[in-house]
Amino acid sequence: MSIIKYKTLKDVPKEEFLVPGTPLCAGCGALQVMRLFHKALGGDVVWVNAAGCVTLMATFPYTPLKSSWFYIAMPSAPAGAQGIRDALDILIKKGKLDPTENLKVVVVTGDGAASDIGLQATSGAIHRGLDFFYLCVDNEAYGNTGFQASSSSPMGSGTATTKPTHLYPAGNVLPKKDLFEIWRSHRPPYVATISPSHVIDMLRKVEKSLSFKGPKLFLALSPCPTGWGAETSESVKLAKLAVETGIWPLKEAVYGEVTHTYIPSKRKPVEDYLKVQRRFAHLFKPVKNESIIAEIQKQVDEYWSKVEH
């Protein structure tokens, strides 16, 4: 298997599967991920979607996609993928459908559907070995409904339901659910984290996953200028900072075996990432909350101490 298809940015495929004109916010990290992810996947794709920001990408009578799209319901996009995959398989097997009509079935959901309401359906689909892709565009909250906390919101972040107050100075007190590990515990062929800032890493992972039959799962950091409180122009920069501070490790797991695909040589302090986002502003103003920032740094350091030796 060759994974050297993507060496430099010049190798990014030129074909576009998403046309402009979507109603998604300017600078949307999720859209950026989807665009690049689709380039690596190639054509003949059906996206299967659960309720979230990207649902609004295709609202009747408009869709930006040149490929197929099926909006399902919030809890069960993976089950929707199951029905499509199985139907294609059985129709081809029975000779009712020409194999050239086959498609790659790709679930795309936000972190709320992935980590909360749709986790059961995801677990079921992975357990059954469903041959599909799952792209979770993780903006760390329920963005489409106004940025309420999800179980993917990081500790210390302010959201519409975890506003920092004098009683709750950290904002969100709960930890971010580790979806990578939840997925990995099912031992699927392929799980990876990706970031829109690290494009070659992303494309190589998609390319690698294409050789596996079964669940291929991607967790993509998706900066959200609207919810995170940053300039639209900062999306990629924030994603890069998340990787360089070690908050967003880039890794993959093949049948459960984890490899880090990028290890920052010298991690930047998490503060560099936190202080440029309004959702963490309460950690810096009116007075700097050293203990919470230190706690976030400690968690990152502990994670990498297990990786680095």
């Binding site: 402009p20 109603p23 295709a58 009578p61 408009y62 869709t63 996609l65 490929s67």
Partner: peptide, 18 residues
């Protein structure tokens, strides 16, 4: 039936005005 067959047609929406 609410199926969309004209795929890739958001180009009709000129979001440049944003």
């Amino acid at each position: 039936i609410p199926d969309l067959l004209s795929v890739g047609n958001t180009a009709l929406r000129k979001t440049g005005s944003w």
